[in-house]
Structures are given as C-alpha cells and as structure tokens.
Design a binder for these strands. Sequence first.
DNA 1: ACAGACCTACTTTACGTTCAGTAAGTTGGT
DNA 2: ACCAACTTACTGAACGTAAAGTAGGTCTGT
Lengths: 202, 202
Amino acid sequence: MSKQRPYATLLAKGEDRKQRILDATQRLVVRHGWRGITLAQIAREAGVSPAGLLHHFASKEQLLHAALDARDAYDETHFQAGGDIVEQMSLLEARFREVPEQIGTYAVLLMENLDAQAPLHERLRVKQHSNVDQVAGEIRRGQSEGRYRTDIDPTAKAVEVMAFLHGVEAMWLLDPAISLPDVFLEYTATLIQRLAVPPAGS
Amino acid sequence: MSKQRPYATLLAKGEDRKQRILDATQRLVVRHGWRGITLAQIAREAGVSPAGLLHHFASKEQLLHAALDARDAYDETHFQAGGDIVEQMSLLEARFREVPEQIGTYAVLLMENLDAQAPLHERLRVKQHSNVDQVAGEIRRGQSEGRYRTDIDPTAKAVEVMAFLHGVEAMWLLDPAISLPDVFLEYTATLIQRLAVPPAGS
DNA sequence: ACAGACCTACTTTACGTTCAGTAAGTTGGT
DNA sequence: ACCAACTTACTGAACGTAAAGTAGGTCTGT
C-alpha cells in the first residue's frame, strides 16, 4: 500500500522517533518483559525497521538502559520525594490511574535481574536501597518531630511500605480488577493508626 | 509396596532423574526467569543431555507446567491453609529460612506472564485470586467470631497482606541482606493492632 | 552535496526440537 | 539357565527458526 511513501515520511525524525521507540520499549517491557520482546517488535510498534531502531540505539541492551534513564528522568521531573508518607501514598495511587502504562517497568525488570550477574542487578539493588532509605528517613523525621511514635524501627517499616507498593503493583498488573482505592485506603489507614503517637501513659 | 509394577526399578530411575530435572528447573527459574534459561542449562544441572531431558518432558513449556505442578503438590502436602493469620505469617517467614531455594518461583513467573496471552497468565491469575479469597475468608471468620473488628473490608485487607508478602519476597530476592525477622515482626504487629477489636465505646 | 534517518539484504549465533541409534535393564517362553 | 522380544533411559548430530546485529545502499530536508 505505502507505495508513494517509500520511507514512511521523515516527519517523525530524530528525537521524536527516538522518544517513540523509548515509549514503545517501556510499554512492551511491562507486558512481556525484556527477554520476552524483540527488536523487531519494538521497532514495529515505533513505526521503524529493526535496523532503523539500531540507528538510534547501538544495541538492545543500550536501549534498555536508555529507556530506564528516560523513566528515571521523568520520575524526577514529575514527582519529588519528601512530604508526609500518607500524602506520598495517595500520590502513588493517583499514578495508577493517571499513567497506568508506566506502572510496572521496574517491577518487571527486577524479577528478570535477580541474579547478581544480571545486567541491571546492581542498578536495581541500589535503587531499591535508596527507596527504602528515603522512606525510612521520612519516618525518622516524623519521629523526631513527634508526629510518629518512636518505638518503631524505621527501616523495617520502610521495607514494609515498599514491599506493599511493589506487591500491589504486581497484583494489579496481573489482575487490574482489584480495587486499588480500597486497598490503598485500607493500608493508609493502617499506617496512620500504627504510626500515631499513643494518647497517654506507658 | 508396588513391587509388581512392570519395569519397577527402571522406572524408578526415571522418576529420580525427573525429580532432579524438576529441582534444577525450579532453582534456575528463580535466578534467571523462565525465558532466561535454556534446556541445555537445565539439562546440564540435572546431569543429562538436552535430548535426554526431552525424553522425560515433551517440551520446554510442558516442563514448566510440570515444575509448577510439583511445586503446588509440595505446598499442599507441607502446608495447610487455615489457622490464624498471624500464625500463618510466622510460618511463611520460617519458610524463607528453611527452604530459601524455593522462594520466588511464583513471583518470578508472575512478572513473566502479565500479558493475557502468556502461557501461565490464567493459571497465575486464578491462584492469586484464590490466595486472596483464602485470606479474606480467614479475616471474615475472625470477624464473625468477634476476634477482629468488623469495620475492615476483608478483601482489601487480604489484598494488602498478599501484596506485602509478594513484595517482601521480591525485595529479599534482589537483596537478601534485608532483615526479614524485623520486617515480618513489624508487619505482624501492625496487623494485630489493626485487626484488634477496640476496647470500648465509639 | 551532505548528513542524518532509514531501508533491504545478509550474517551469525543460539536455542528448541527431532531423529537414529546405543546401553542397560526386564519379561516371558523354553 | 538362557534367549529373544521388548521397554526405558539416554546420547550425538543435525535441522529449522528466530533474533541480534552488520553492510551498504537510498531517501529527504537543508
């Protein structure tokens, strides 16, 4: 059919096409995992030939890193850390509704890179650690400001919070029918109740 | 026992090797994912040639199903459902220490089968649903017996519990340095506090 | 006319699977 | 006790396919 447009138009050139490749990559990775997709698939989704894709990214692995970098950059510009944990929680939940297509990228890649030799293992481990540290820091802050009770291990709680988020992400990806509002509301309530400073004596 | 079976000892040898293949499969799947391993790898680990492996299992995919079936059977004989949630929780935690090598099989496969067309998608979705139902049922039971407060949505809580377990599994697989006892203790305490019937008036 | 974008055609490698055949038991008849 | 027919377990080599990556050319806006 496309006989009069041999080269599918150059209007989507350069950075534009690059972005579309990155988007397609992210979308496909969530659904099929990194090992479950091929350059041909990504290329098709982005409207380019496999070789055309490799014109922008030197290799499949480099594309993966680029996609993750793009994702990190997006996160950094659209969400900043800090703020009350409860507040962060509802922000996270909103994300499931607002940008559902970018939920799960890290969760999927994590399970594909458990082995210490895996290409993303270290990157993901560091990120997980920093996430936990961040939440733990927020809890510690709340404790020192007297908003949270002090007999709670900030690290343990932080791991729990991250585990909940990670798990709910996984479960929702497998079955989007689960009611996120209910679950988030329930967990947030639990969190508030647990962290609240007990009213009086001992 | 069944000594009059036609080719008893020969078949026993087969079953033996079959089991070793199943074990190797499970071990490798956790580390590298299903798509990350080859028949050759599994075969080597089990001490056979790739062709020898296919003598016992018709295809790579059938091997996967067999490995999952074996896992399910193991679970069913070694752990029974029911019992207090808190109690179940410590049982689960013990498992991380006692049989660490079989932690993560489902978690890894889940992320590789998110797509509705994926071979294990339905199987995993059903299992997740039944897990949630089971926990929810246990909560409901506690509520009707007056042990748990009744203003909590059993399903939401059940999803939360499963999410926590799933998430902590993933995080531990990526970084076994996290302190499971602390995290489980903290979450269990939270759970108790949340489910406990409030002492008196409104 | 040049450079960047992109294509077709190709090479290479890896992997699942098949196949023909071998080794080692097992069984039942003599 | 022995042998022929049979069964299971397994190997080595080969095949087909799919996928990453390469070579070298073509198109298009500047």
